[in-house]
Simulated assay, not measured.
Amino acid sequence: MQDVRDLARDLVSIPSHEDETAVGDRIESWLREHTDADVTRDDAPNGGNVLARKGSGESLALVGHHDVVEPDESQVADGDYEVYEEDGRLYGRGSADMKGAVAAAMVAFRDADPESLDCELVFASFVGEEIGGTGARFAIDEGFAPDYAVVGEGSTGYSGDGVTDVVVAHKGRRGSTVVATGEAAHASEVENGENAVYRACDAVDVIRDLDFPRTEVFGHAVEGSVTVTEIDGGTAWNVVPERCEVTVDERTVPGERAALDRVEEVAGVEWTVDQDLPPMQCSDEVFADVVLDVAREVQDGIPEHVVKPHATDAGWLADAGTACVIYGPSEQGEAHTADESVSLDVLDRCYRTYRRLAGSWS
């Protein structure tokens, strides 16, 4: 427990919202000092991903990321991130999302005896998760392809207070832009123009009537959504607008997308995808059940298979063929806040789960 706590405090204190090099250096040096694993650092932008491997056979990866979102000013002191403990919790930017889980995975990786492993155990901490999974995508392009992965994003508190569940699916996000073009004219002579805002409104009506994407994973319903979040058009009160843009947020589900291309049936309307973070579904129910069994052994609560609403790097890994689940200490609503924190007891629970899973999976 103390090793996880001390390492988590160390990692949380190191700034990593603009450049992840320094915290990546710390992760790499710790792994080289405390393990005999094959430790590597790739050339992913903003500091590189840190990877470590030991054992042989089918590969099981413990996966995290060490970048964070920009801290609140209250979370910075003397150039470092403020970090402290109070009431059994570790406070600081990245404590929940997700350096605490990275620390738990590192210590579990260290403590897994290579002589007793029936698999290749892999540790991976990526850069760029908060900006679209750039580190994970780089690693995958370079050949990173574990057979199985436990991603340490938050899974605590879904089925019940304080229970750390096993996420078997999560939504993705497709952000897109609908552009309506028309012809400008003086507002006193509307018949001489073509109103782009009207065309955009017709496209919004199409979006409003679309069915939300939905599916099931291991009997659990996964329902997405589609909604207009921004609209911008026109240049002056007395000019018929010639351009109008509409921003659309879609929460995607495995194997399904909303039929947003239907907006292009409206004259003068084009649709482009700006970001597409993939959803995740575990492709191996036996693996998901094994992780759940181990999770039940290390806590008093009764964890369940659950669905997570947020996109993570697990989506990129699953899309590349890795059987993924998510199991981590962060609770809903903890990440990205000015008082971000994580339970130290739950960090220890995650450490024990990761270590026990490494010894039992084959």
Rank of each mutant, 00 (worst) to 15 (best):
D6N: 07
L7T: 02
A8F: 02
R9H: 15
L11K: 05
S13H: 00
I14M: 06
V23S: 03
T35N: 04
D36I: 09
D38V: 15
N49H: 05
L51P: 08
A52N: 08
R53K: 10
G55C: 08
S59Y: 10
L62C: 11
H65C: 08
H66W: 04
V69F: 04
E73N: 07
V76R: 01
G79P: 13
Y91K: 07
K99I: 07
A101V: 01
V102W: 04
V102K: 06
A103S: 07
M106I: 09
V107D: 14
R110W: 00
A112F: 13
E120V: 14
V122Q: 15
E129Y: 11
T134F: 10
A136N: 03
A139L: 01
I140H: 15
G143H: 03
G143L: 11
A149W: 03
V150F: 03
G160D: 15
G160Q: 13
T164P: 05
V167R: 09
H170I: 05
H170K: 08
R174Y: 10
T177S: 03
E183M: 12
S188H: 08
V190A: 14
E191Y: 09
N192V: 10
E194V: 15
E194T: 14
V197E: 04
D202S: 04
A203H: 00
A203T: 03
V204A: 10
I207Y: 06
I207N: 06
D209G: 04
D209M: 05
E216D: 13
E216I: 01
V217A: 01
F218M: 07
H220K: 11
S225V: 07
S225I: 06
T229F: 02
I231C: 09
G234D: 04
T235R: 13
N238T: 15
R243D: 13
E245L: 06
V246L: 03
D249V: 09
T252W: 10
T252G: 14
R257T: 10
D261Q: 14
D274G: 04
Q275C: 10
P279K: 10
S283K: 10
D284C: 01
V291C: 08
R296E: 15
V298D: 11
V306A: 12
P309D: 14
H310P: 01
A311P: 01
D319T: 13
A323E: 13
A323Y: 09
C324N: 07
Y327C: 15
A335S: 12
H336R: 00
H336A: 11
S343M: 11
D348E: 15
Y351N: 12
R352N: 12
Y354G: 08
S360G: 11
W361I: 08
